[in-house]
Amino acid sequence: MLPDIRLVNQISVALLVAGAIVLVVRASVYSGYAPSWFWWLLSLVIILLAVLLVYCLFMRVRLLAKTMDAKKRIRLAGSVLFHFGILLLIIAGFYSSFYKFRAILILTEGQTVEDVRENYYILSSGPLEPTDFGDAAIRLDKVHVDFYSPTLIEELGAEVTVFKGMPSSAKQVSTSVNRPFYYQSRKAAIYKFGFSPLIVIKSSPTETLWTGFVNLDLVAGKTDLFKWPLSGELVRVTAELADGKVTAFSLGSDAAGETLIAVGGEPTDFLGYTVEIPEYRYWLGFAVNSVKGRYLIFIGFAVLVLGILLRYSLVFRERDAV
């Protein structure tokens, strides 16, 4: 025996109110980070909503089959599509969460990394996330950046080479902000950008103690911290730009004060050592995620929008909508 439709309507209102309360809690109390119980509660509300949606869809489809009035049929069809769209999005959400892989991959210009988990800063991953994609590597060939002013970027893009197995399979792709590239069932979008000065620390003009590119977040006049490799002291770094190029980096610490080191300039004393910055490169942080469930999400959105337009198209046009 099917439950009374009034009861179903009351349950659906209760679930919508519960969903609204959960969202208020997420947007206010836990706006930055939500504890695990919150996710369980949210999942419970969504699962109950999905069960209710299946039931309501079943009822509406039965009603649609019986209805003869053309206007009512359009409304019902719209309603069915709208609710089916929500159901598809819920299914897509759960499906993609099981196969989820969200990570940041940081690459300096010219750097090649193998596509293995150790090279990613993993933000989250699902229990069924595929880990074995075979041999692959990614190289960041060139970063294109146009500065409108020292603190404002107008264009940002890059050339990337993806290797799959044999070097002969290398494929070069152009990417830019909002235009991600795809590889190994993953998608990579430019997410972060910064300068990477080559820092050379010497004890004498001929004896080099340490050298390496240091990825720093210095765009838009920001200051970043760099752990001095010889003592572990935190060093403040800022960049000085002119005509879209970094002309100098300023290194500072509480002990040594601020020191300006020109790019490609003379060695400069800092913290008791001789420091040089012969060149700098750009680095990019790519937001990498799994593309599993992508089409289901697109279809869900399309059905949802189509359904709502169909459901209310008559309301917009009718002389008396009440």
């Binding site: 969202l23 997420r26 902000v177 979008a189 937001a287 995620n289 999400i297």
Partner: peptide
């Protein structure tokens, strides 16, 4: 999803 690599980030504006 094209910009951050995620459809939903629980950003306060998104959530509201």
């Amino acid at each position: 999803n094209d910009l951050y690599g995620s459809y939903w980030s629980w950003d306060p504006v998104e959530t509201w």
